[in-house]
């Protein structure tokens, strides 16, 4: 249940953010392992380099903020009526990558325990 709520919050907040761009297509892909998870988001709205840098910065904070993650992180994914706040997600995940894919924006979130091994995930591998 804990994992379900956590994933729901993360997916809700990022989806809120992507829907603000009014995309015609939005795909969410989840891959879970016992020690972690990988969530990918794709839409059909390419962003500028500046926008991508801003999104990346919000999702990858400079330092860990446990005091904000556990408490204020609860607000993530709960308020679709207001502007999305990706930093609420950034404090709670291990890493995020942000890039323009062939069709639009692609966001990958990596989360999990200390034993988490991203090598178990193959979805985003680029040749």
């Amino acid at each position: 249940m804990k994992r379900k709520e956590f994933l729901g919050r993360l997916i809700g907040e990022v989806t809120n953010f992507l829907l603000e761009g009014n995309p015609l297509r939005l795909v969410v892909s989840l891959h879970q392992e016992p020690d972690g998870a990988h969530i990918s988001f794709f839409d059909d709205r390419p962003r500028t380099e500046e926008e991508i840098a801003r999104i990346y910065q919000a999702l990858n904070p400079k330092q860990s903020r446990p005091e904000l993650a556990e408490y204020y992180g609860l607000m993530a994914g709960h308020d679709m009526a207001w502007d999305a706040r990706l930093k609420l997600i950034g404090w709670q995940i291990k890493h995020a990558s942000v890039e323009n894919s062939d069709s639009g924006l692609r966001i990958d979130l990596w989360l999990g325990s200390d034993a988490f091994n991203p090598e178990n995930f193959t979805l985003h591998k680029k040749k």
């Binding site: 446990p66 005091e67 904000l68 993650a69 556990e70 408490y71």
Partner: peptide, 10 residues
């Protein structure tokens, strides 16, 4: 099973 730091503000 959280650190005290996680709840320090509360």
């Amino acid at each position: 099973h959280k650190t005290f730091g996680s709840y320090s503000l509360i």
